[in-house]
Design a binder for these strands. Sequence first.
DNA 1: ACCTGAACACCGTTCAAGT
DNA 2: ACCTGAACACCGTTCAAGT
Lengths: 247, 247
Amino acid sequence: MSSNPVARRRPTHRKGRPTLTRESVGRAALDFLDHHGPAELTMRSLAADLGVSPRALYNYVEDRRDLLTVAAELFESEWRPPELDSGHWRESLRSYCRALRAHYRSHPGMTTLALTENITTARHPTMLRNVDTLIGFFEAVGLSLRDAYRACMETIRLVAGFVELQDIVYDRPPAHVNPADLAQLPPPWLRPKDPKDAGGYGEPEGSEPVGDLPHLARLGELEPDSPDTLFAFSLDILVEGIAARAA
Amino acid sequence: MSSNPVARRRPTHRKGRPTLTRESVGRAALDFLDHHGPAELTMRSLAADLGVSPRALYNYVEDRRDLLTVAAELFESEWRPPELDSGHWRESLRSYCRALRAHYRSHPGMTTLALTENITTARHPTMLRNVDTLIGFFEAVGLSLRDAYRACMETIRLVAGFVELQDIVYDRPPAHVNPADLAQLPPPWLRPKDPKDAGGYGEPEGSEPVGDLPHLARLGELEPDSPDTLFAFSLDILVEGIAARAA
DNA sequence: ACCTGAACACCGTTCAAGT
DNA sequence: ACCTGAACACCGTTCAAGT
């Protein structure tokens, strides 16, 4: 040991700012998503955030894909799931899914980015452990190993799909959708387009085009669901579906 | 009527190729996805495909977002769902979902594009009619109107989520994943990274890292699921979950 | 060893000009 | 009326050069 040369530490600062690392760059990318949309996350904007030139990032990550992979790994490692108790498995699974949903929503766009960049290489040990635990939970509930694996994948996909396809529209309404429209049934994307912007669906006096869509029309009389209520329904379906399988 | 000037038709051809229209441009975008990935669909590549300059597209669509909206509308209008029979509702719902899955897969990337571009404005009348019919089906099965709406959304989200998060990796394996790895359990994204590329998970002789993940390790002994089998499991969960709700 | 600045090949979009 | 070509402000990435 003493024959080794004195360990030369890499400097911790440079020009007054902490030295970059592979992890700190990935961390910055993940945090960036808390303030901006995924489309705004570019090598240049991230470099500007960090106060360096875009070229500097390439000393720590291979390319943009690699950067997003590091961010995805940090994202995975960040989550500490609640305890799972197969004794009260229904409520336990619900809590688990609610926590998982909150985690996905906490860094909005991370899943979308992973999707568009086809990132399947972020396999953080913490995530593998979480998945392993969840599979064990489903076995304890009464599923075969194979079904437990399937149920685990189904659970994750349900939560991720809900956040990406449902929550994202409510949490960050796109420029072209009126937030007030989200608080009504049916949601904007199930309302007929008003022809030529002349009085359409929302008109108080009954108008023609609705006649063809009787069930959608009747939805207008209902109080709208909050995203949380809708998610609770999804969980009901999942839980009872698994219960039927375990029986 | 006869006082109207003679209707001047717009020319149907120009320079030997059919004149572009808003619809034909959107159609070309949708068809483009059958041959290329969504990331390759650019204004320039599409224009090259059509044999025009990129600028020409802007005579028919406002911008890239608008182009993708037209493509999404065509995508929605293209689907003719199978008949729904509430008399044999379980098998009927299964067939419906299988057909819907096939539709999503037929133009891979369309949903991903709609997601990244936040397109919620594609509301083709055909799609609204299909949704309306599905809600009516769930009411006939025994759900309240509110639950029927929720079940309809849940069904669509389940199928879309399955295609985007599961099928896409099998149908178009990204460059960095070995297709042979997809035919094994656990899937690549649940296998521990081999440390420094030295013998890792796949090793015949038992190695350390697996000891910590007992359930994932036992998965290796199982024959892998085909995507179709995995989808059938998802449908089982959905159908029995809805059955419990309808009771 | 780590950074910057300039450059390259792309992208969406717009302008001025052609026919 | 509809198109092209050149241009602008972006993007990811690379090269040569600085300290």
